[in-house]
Design a protein around this nucleic acid. Sequence first.
DNA 1: TGTACATCAGTGAACGCGCGTTCACTGATGTAC
DNA 2: TGTACATCAGTGAACGCGCGTTCACTGATGTAC
Lengths: 233, 233
Amino acid sequence: MMPRTPRPAGSKPAAPRAPRTRGRPTGEAPGLRPRLLDAALARYASQGIAATRLRDIARDAGATPALLHYYFGDGKHLLEAVIEERILPAIMPMRDAVAAAAAGDDITAAVAAFVNGMSDTIEKHPWVPALWVREVLSEGGALTSVLIDESGRPIVSLMASRFAAAQARGEVNAALDPRLLELSLVSLTFFPPAAAPLWRQLLDARGLGKEDVCRHTLELLQHGFRAEPRNGG
Amino acid sequence: MMPRTPRPAGSKPAAPRAPRTRGRPTGEAPGLRPRLLDAALARYASQGIAATRLRDIARDAGATPALLHYYFGDGKHLLEAVIEERILPAIMPMRDAVAAAAAGDDITAAVAAFVNGMSDTIEKHPWVPALWVREVLSEGGALTSVLIDESGRPIVSLMASRFAAAQARGEVNAALDPRLLELSLVSLTFFPPAAAPLWRQLLDARGLGKEDVCRHTLELLQHGFRAEPRNGG
DNA sequence: TGTACATCAGTGAACGCGCGTTCACTGATGTAC
DNA sequence: TGTACATCAGTGAACGCGCGTTCACTGATGTAC
């Protein structure tokens, strides 16, 4: 039952980042390591992490499976390296941008920053929605805990408290629940890009770009949550 | 490269549904077959289809892996049986209910039927959101084509044309795109139940039930898409 | 300046385990005669 | 009514393949002396 120890503790280093002593420090030629990370990320996003085979990652990167062991030790450490060197660097700037925009009291600006920040992140890193849907949204996803801790919790609680404050000032329809309003915001922002391959095939989506979707979402949301005008029925 | 033929064509029948001749027709005792289908469905939803191992399904159902071959031939035919006997029977009633409600011209009633129909389906079959997210939403999902053809395409095109007609009558905000409005409706309906394990952990969700979420969603949507009142700015 | 050597950046082949699948078999049950 | 037999509903053990992992090795490159 005991899993085989992935590294016999005494042969080669798990990751060849030892203090530079003598050998050949190259200084150039990035080598195969980054290509292995990119190939792993692409497979993770398109097939799911649990269904991805290391041999496929190696083949995609033009390397041998033995190289994965050379650089990362085993599959678990490969995943950790992908998180650390690919996923978190893509997610963090968005977290910071939204947090900055939500610092003030302007709820409309905070919502716009959220929608646009998400849209920019996805444009820069198109693998985000697929990976997010499979490995964060799904119960038992391999990235749930790390991404929740690193970005989900701070953003969600910040936005929900902004909605509650705006509602207390009378700027948000009193019939809405601020917690569910945050959920609706996330739904309208995360779902469409994740479902893009689907709805482009279901609807006639010609002529609809990222900007159109953002504008539509903001129009719908801001009419939806705004408090009723005093003269209305 | 040629896959091994899963059935040597001449031994036992792939599914023991032969014409009753002599033997022991029992007439009672459902046996392990339905339990295998249920166990497979549960694993598919919680781990994804590609990552599910047949041995785990057998163990969950209290049977041997050989039994899966006895009833279904191989993993591909097991999946087909799960689709035919579990998934489609759960999905079809919702498709028909929404189609019936969208027959008339009342866009508000059609939207409410969509939201409530989805909510009822999920309450009856809690595995729907997880399976849907992994295997329909994701590109290359194992259920994409069958569920799109059987329920997605008819419902989505029907609702989008209803939105377009209502907008032509002046009932829907002219700044919104009716195709994206349908996408927003799907987002607000599918995403929250799929993300429920997540947001119950992120937000303080005490006291929020299915009815509260439906009411909130309808409130937000119907304020969001309604045409501006004439006297408003 | 030459050269011995340490390290880098990998490769090809093999190993052992777990998986899907197969095979030969079994006790229970109902039916034909 | 007895009994021979066909079928049902499975089981236990094994098989072969593909996977993650390991091992021994290699040519290239830079450094110390």
